[in-house]
Structures are given as structure tokens and as C-alpha cells.
Design a protein around this nucleic acid. Structure first.
Lengths: 230, 230
DNA sequence: TTGAAAAAATGATTTAGGTCATACTTGAAG
DNA sequence: CTTCAAGTATGACCTAAATCATTTTTTCAA
């Protein structure tokens, strides 16, 4: 669980996370370029990568750990839009919009994250058609995801949304158990923390999940999928 | 209001809508190519451009009229994600995702809409860097818009969301009055039609808006902006 | 012009889920 | 170990907004 010092310096050539990323199609040469341009940083839990309104300077490539992407509503309340894990590249939308960040990003746990400067990244995009197509595909898919997100917020009950969220997180946390604060989970589902806790209790009583202090274990994925309905 | 027959054949060279579109940066030559590749079609009110789940064959460029972009929730209820007007190019996200349409699109009024086939469009994107950058910028901005949309759905009251929606529509309808069915408006705001109608009544009584049968006229934009809060 | 269907409007009732108040756990720092 | 703050949990209460039922208005085709 605890990241060792050795994790602080990854080389792209051997980075397992890279295989799952937009850089997976890179040839030897591009990987070399990438490796020489990136810097690698250790992040503590709850440390910001970037903040809404600030000027984008590059992209972040997650080697290990999870980060949340969120906006703040008028009263400053967080709405989590996405939770990113190893292999995801975070913050590349802002490279193209020509505007300040429209969202913020913060680590959910300690993490090891590489950084690639804006001009280096845009250079790669300009010269590498594979990467470019991958990015456009990614942007488009994410747009579709967010349309579904909006529809879920508008039409599903909190109970259904929580189930959807748990199933999404189950994918993101892969073999580990879901490990996220109740408050963050509530801000992802779009509900009050109290309501969320009550629903988790219901789910426990219904034998759908089990909790180990803050960690959540899904017991009956079949039933959960049925409840989520989509 | 009624589209004349002459509208059925537009040439890109003289198309006023093109100036507001992603094609605005095109030089003479590209405009010529575009013009020879596009076909121009008249659409009746409530006629679909494309439907969720079907295979994308090209993009639609709105010359005149408004269209809605929407998804359907589990019970088949529409959630309108976006309303597009003259100059907007609709359906280009699906050109890059390699997947079927994730949303549907239908005209809200009679419309004149040009069509550009997938391969022609992708060719333009590959060869024209301006267009490509414009598209990436557009995709990124839309992603930001949807993050805000999600946050609004999660945190704002129906009243606030309706005000936001009216202000958005006010921009889209430019000099005309907002002209959309109560049901569509409700599906955009993400509420029940009855609730929407009651709120419009409140707004009328508060002197914020005025209705002319189905058309909505904004009287006090200042106050409306204050209510929307963002 | 008229008649039927669609859309808009209003009323009555219910409830999901938010808010506020309070208590209990847990884990990190001394 | 203790301590204390942050996080988690539970209870009581309230209201925004959904739902269902009905009426009125508008639209548009015959």
C-alpha cells in the first residue's frame, strides 16, 4: 500500500501503467522522447494536481494511485466528475481549450504521477497521429460518458446512482477494495453524506455489500447491476 | 419563419452560418471542396437527424433551425443534453469514437441542414490543422460545459436550473423569442413538465418573463442572472 | 370552420432525500 | 498507550418536487 522510494523514478520503457494509457501505441523512439521529457513526482494523499481557474502547464500521467476530478458549485460544494487511476492521463483537455482549468484534481491516496510540459505534449500530439486519434477518441468517449452522467443525475434515484457509482469504482479499484471517504463518495453520487451512509447501511442489510471500516466490498455484483439498471 | 424552397440549396461560399462554425477558418479552396462534398436537406419539425445506437455516417451542419441532442434514460424518458442552432456542427463526436451514436438528435423546428460524409469529413480533419485544432478545442469546451451541467443537476434547485436553461436558450435563440415545448424544456432542465409550468407561472408573476402562448420572452435578464448565480 | 388530439395549466397528495443536531469510531500525532 | 480531531453513524424533522387526476387551451387536419 505504501509507495516505496523506488517508485519515485519510473522509466516509461518499463512502466506498466503506460500500457493501459494513451501512450500504449508509442514506438521505441517516442517512448524514449517521452521518458526524457517527463518528470516523476510523489504525491501525498489529498494533494492537488491542479486547481480550477489556474493556467494549465502540462499533463499528468498516473503511474500509481487514484485522483479525483471535480468542480465546485456555487456554495463551494464539490461535485466529483471522474475518478482516475493508473494509466490515465489527466488534464489534457485543458491543453486544447486555450482556457484555464475548468475542473480541479486532487489525489485520493498517495500517488506517483509523471508530468509532461504543455509544449512537449502538444508536440507529441502534432507529430504522432496515433496519439492524436487516441486523444480524440478519448475526448469523444468521455463526452458520451458525461451525457449518461447527466441523464442519471436527472432521472435516477440516489439509490440507483449509488449502485452505479459503486460499480464504476469497482472497475477503477480493480483487485483492491473500494477505498474512498464517505464524503467523496457522496460528492461523486451527488447526494448528502448522511443519505449516502444510510443507503450503504441498507445495502449491507440487504447483503449487497460489506464494509471494512472505510473500505467497501461488493458481495453481489449481479444484483447491483440489476439495481443500477444500465 | 417558414423556410422557403430557396433555402434548400445553400452554397458554403455564401453561407452565413458557416462563418460562425468550425469551418469559418477555411480558405477558398477548402470551402470549394466542402461545398462539392456536402448535400443540403430540408427537415420538418421533429424529424430525427440520427438515433442513439445507430452507425454514424457523417456530420450535420446546421444552416437554419434548431435541433436537440438527447439521451434516453432507463424508462425511455428524454434528457436533453444540448440544443444546437445555426452554424453548429452536430454529430462529429461520433466520427472519432469508433462507436455507434451515444445520443439522438431531432429537429425542434423546420430546419435546413447540410450533410458531410464520414470519409470526406475525416479527410478534411486530417489535412486541415485549423479545423483539427478547432475540433479539439470544441470537444474540450463541451467537456467543461458538461461538467458544469452535472454539477448544476446535482446541486442546484429546479428553479435555479430553469433560470440557467432560459439564459442558455436566450443565447441560442438570439434575436428570436425562445420557442420550445414545455415538455422539451422540462427535459432540458431535468424536471417534470408540471413543475416546469408552475415555475414559469411564478416567474411571470415576479415579472421576470412573459409568455406568448408557447414562446417565452425574458423581461429581466439582470435578475435572472442573479438567480442563476453562475 | 370545426372537432379531435396534443399541449398547457392547475389542484391535491405523497415522498425521497436534504438539513440540523448529536453521538459514536477511528487512526494519527504526541 | 492516550488524546483529539476528522470521519462515520443515527435520529428527528421538513420541504422541494414528483406523481396522479382533471380541466383548459391551442393546434392543425379535414
Amino acid at each position: 500500500m505504501t509507495l516505496e522510494k523506488s517508485h519515485k523514478h519510473v522509466t516509461c520503457e518499463t512502466c506498466l501503467s503506460r500500457n493501459k494509457s494513451l501512450f500504449s501505441s508509442f514506438g521505441c523512439q517516442d517512448v524514449g522522447t517521452l521518458d526524457s521529457q517527463k518528470t516523476c513526482n510523489y504525491f501525498k494523499k489529498n494533494q492537488p494536481l491542479f486547481i480550477e481557474g489556474s493556467i494549465p502547464r502540462g499533463v499528468f500521467c498516473i503511474n500509481e494511485g487514484k485522483v479525483k476530478i471535480f468542480t465546485r458549485g456555487n456554495e463551494g460544494k464539490e461535485q466529483i466528475i471522474h475518478i482516475a487511476g493508473a494509466g490515465e492521463i489527466v488534464g489534457f483537455r485543458a491543453m486544447f481549450s486555450g482556457e484555464p482549468y475548468s475542473v480541479s484534481s486532487t489525489t485520493l491516496e498517495e500517488a506517483n504521477i509523471c508530468f509532461i510540459g504543455k509544449s512537449d505534449f502538444l508536440n507529441l500530439v502534432d507529430t504522432n497521429q496515433n496519439l492524436r486519434n487516441g486523444i480524440m477518441r478519448e475526448l469523444s468517449k468521455e463526452l458520451a460518458d458525461r451525457a449518461t452522467f447527466i441523464t442519471n443525475m436527472a432521472q435516477k434515484s440516489v439509490r440507483e446512482r449509488l449502485v452505479s457509482a459503486l460499480l464504476i469504482l469497482d472497475d477503477i479499484y480493480e483487485d483492491e477494495m473500494i477505498n474512498i471517504s464517505r464524503e467523496d463518495l457522496a460528492n461523486f453520487v451527488g447526494t448528502a453524506t448522511e443519505t449516502l451512509i444510510r443507503l450503504l447501511k441498507d445495502f449491507k442489510e440487504e447483503g449487497l455489500i460489506q464494509t471494512h471500516t472505510r473500505k467497501i466490498e461488493l458481495l453481489d455484483r449481479e444484483a447491483l447491476h440489476r439495481i443500477a439498471g444500465s
